[in-house]
Each structure stands twice: as C-alpha cells, then as structure tokens.
Design a binder for these strands. Structure first.
Lengths: 237, 237
DNA sequence: CGTTTTGTTGATTTCTGTCAAGACACGTGG
DNA sequence: CCACGTGTCTTGACAGAAATCAACAAAACG
C-alpha cells in the first residue's frame, strides 16, 4: 500500500539513494507478475533490529537493498562526528545502487526492518538479461535526484521552522490521505536530516503546536491541523 | 579534455542534473566512434550569451541538453526570491533529464555557452533503439546523486569556511592538475551554491588569503597554495 | 572617463547552536 | 502493578556564527 503510493508519485520525501519505488510485489500487489519484479526473484530477505547497522560508509558495496518493511536512515559523517542524514527509507525504497566500489553512506534501521538484498553480481546479470530494467532504475534514480535537489534548497535556504514544516508535509505526502503521521525517528534524527540541532527541532515543534498548526497524538504521532498554513510556511516544498 | 577528466572520475563538483559526462566526441576525443555517442548525432547545437536563460523551472521539459562549452548554473527559487544553486555545469555535463513534464529548476548561462539540445522524443526513440544507453545514463545519474549527497552534507553540516574550502577543492578536481582555477561565477553565485551570503563568501576568501591557503591571480583565477590545509578545512569534502 | 555593477570591509542584529537543568516516557525488575 | 533508572524530549539562559545593514573600493562597461 505504501509501496503503491510511493510508486504513483515522485518520491519527494526521501532524497536518499534510489528511494523511489519500483513496481514490485511488496505490499500485496498481487496483480503484478513475477516478470515485472525480477529483483524479488533473486533477492535474499534479511531482518534487522531497530538501531542496528545494515552497512557502513566505506564498506565494499557488494549488494543493493530494497526495503520491505520498517524505516531506515542513510547518513554521512564528517570526521569530527557531525552527521547529515541523507534520507529516510520506507517500504519499496531502494538503497546502495551507487555503481561504486564502496558504499558512500551508512544505513541503519530506525525501526525493526525487513529488506531484500540483491547482490551486485546478480544485479549486473539481470541488467544484461533485461535491458528494460536499466530504464526503470534510471527513472527511479532520477526521482531520487529530484528529491535531493529539493533537499538542497531546504538545507541551503530555508529557516528552521520552514524546514520543519517542509519535513512534516513531505512525510504526510507519503503517509497517504490520513492526517496523523507517524514519526518513528528521534528528534536527533530529524535534526540531522534538516541540518539543525535537537533543541531547535524541539522548539520548532512547540511553536507549531502553540500556533495550532499541528497536534501531537500519543504514540508520537503528529496530526497536521492546518495544511494551508504549513504549506505557506514551507514556501512551496 | 575537460570532458575526459570529467568522464574519468565521478563528477563531484556538480550536483546538478545529470552533470557527469557521457563518453562523447566533445573535446577532440577522436578515437570515440559515432556509435559511442548517439546523442551527438541527433543533437542540435545552440549558443547562449552570458547571463541568458536557457530554460526556467516550470516550463514544459521538451528537451535535454549537453554542455559543449562554457559554464551554466542550475538553480531553484523560493517564492520570496531566495535562490539555491543546484550545480554549475561544464563541458560534457548534461541537464534536463528529469522524466518529468516540466523542468524542476532553471538553467542560465554563467559564461557564453554552447550546448547540444536533444529533444525528449528523440531521446526516447534512442533509448528504445539502443538499450545500452539507459545503462550509461543510469551511471551518469547515479554519479549526480552521489554529488548531490555530498552537497547535502556540505549544506547541512559544514561551516562557512569549510564550505568554501570544499568548493575550491571540488573545482580544482575538475580543472585537472593545474593549481590555478578559474572562477567564472560571481560571489553571489558562489554564495547561493553554498547556502551563504556574498558577504560571508567574501570574508571567507579574505581569510583564506591572509592564511596563505589561496592566492587571487588576475582574471579572477584562484591559486590553491596549500591543498593539505584546505583539505583539512573541508573535512574530507 | 564617468557610470554602474561587483566585491570588500565594518558595525550591528538575529537566528540557531551550545550548555545546562528539569520533565517526561519507557523498559526493567522487584 | 509500581518504583526505579536510563534515555529522550523540552525549556531556559547564554554565546557565537552568519545575516543584515551600510559604506566604501574596485572592477567592468559603455
């Protein structure tokens, strides 16, 4: 279901790596034939506990991954420990398709996570056998790039509150029509995604709450009370 | 020649749009056969004066472009005029390959520029006729995405001086071995690329000058006097 | 050579980061 | 089921980096 939504619209929430969905059998899309999802046929399913590493920047990049369930964060570190989260991945999103020797970012499970692992060698074979796959991956990667460019605009030119509003709206776009959106990631994750500190994120939430633009529900869920005002704040996004 | 350099290494300078080079006949690569550069065969050559628009965000995206000569800036605007430059494109770089109805950023000539224009329809035909092209474009787009992620780290987590050092090093990586690098773009362009103001960029240059890390030559060229120190400052970059 | 644009420098403000403490939630074990 | 400890979140006071405002210098242009 979330795979469906993600496939239907360009993925603007996750400027991570190949994060838009390929048409796939994830989420009960029974109508899709096996041939339409060649990756699933060769994938190996893996499960990770929350907060566990999936791979780290600099490791040999011998496989790509597709998220089946859960949320994953991709990030890069500076030598002194500063962290920039590149994207949050959800069901249907892909990561690791860098065509580089080594992974260029680290991946960790935010929640308990199930992923499909496709080895690099198998992917190469598949790309040879099925040239149309390259075009699909191209279109997916392109969506990623678009999201990354939006995120550059956010990081370079938006204020803290604008960043938060943009983030919440982008999240809600993925969480289909419902107004309550889950925030499985910590304040610190959000901060490192938006180029802020946890304190600034927290103050931002408080401000949005007192201005009645959002409401915090139990379970850490957020309800967007005034999308108009949020969109105004986000300045397009 | 610059096409050669750009093709040899992942393009880390231009997190724009499909900015890494395809193998092409640009720059006198005589050995490359026509079949290796199918885009050139169908491209229409266009010339733009400096500071002129090539296309604008929101326009119908009916063509993609490859830069033959000159420097181009890609940027996005917020409604109130704040600008984020997504990337600077040089010879060999491509732009517009968004598979979207409309362009998602604007493109302007920084210097006088020559580009090849390939219509969307022609590109689609070409992709059908020559499936291997999709794989090349995929690899190019992927390099772009890598560059975009580096730029996210820069925008979100680096200080003004670190941003400047990273920028200069990235530039010098494209301008092959020579230590003097051209800065065809204005301070304001650099500022909007790094998420800073012109004043902060100017102060940064001054600081790098007084610390003898760089030297300004005539013609606006910059000589990197101490790469080590700059790399240290850039924190990897 | 004058005019206009671009770049530099200085003074000041503001936003966000830093440091610090308290509130709250959560999981564990009694 | 409740008490406790640990970690996360929130709030406050303060500091600092970069933005803003402003003036001048330098370069580009006609």
């Amino acid at each position: 279901m979330s795979a469906l939504t993600a496939a239907a619209q360009p993925n603007r929430f996750v400027p991570g790596y190949l994060a838009a969905s390929l048409p796939s059998s994830i989420g009960g899309m029974a109508k899709v034939q096996r041939s339409a999802d060649p990756l699933a046929a060769i994938a190996q399913v893996k499960v990770y506990d929350r907060e566990h590493a999936i791979f780290a920047e600099g490791e040999a990049a011998d496989a790509i991954f597709r998220v089946v369930d859960g949320v994953i964060r991709l990030y890069k570190l500076l030598p002194d420990g500063r962290r920039q989260i590149i994207g949050f991945l959800q069901a249907g999103d892909m990561m690791g398709l860098a065509f580089a020797e080594r992974y260029l970012y680290s991946a960790e499970a935010v929640t308990a996570t199930t992923v499909q692992r496709i080895s690099r060698a198998q992917l190469d074979d598949l790309l040879d056998a099925q040239p149309s796959l390259a075009r699909k991956l191209l279109s997916v990667t392109t969506s990623e790039l678009v999201a990354a460019q939006d995120q550059m605009l956010l990081l370079g030119r938006k204020t803290a509150l604008e960043k938060l509003a943009s983030f919440l709206l982008a999240l809600s776009r993925r969480t289909d029509g419902n107004r309550a959106i889950a925030l499985p990631m910590s304040r610190s994750d959000i901060a490192d995604y938006l180029g802020l500190t946890t304190e600034t994120v927290s103050r931002g939430f408080t401000k949005l709450k007192t201005n009645r633009l959002i409401r915090i529900l139990d379970g850490g869920k957020v309800e967007l009370l005034d999308r108009e005002a949020l969109a105004e704040l986000a300045e397009c996004a």
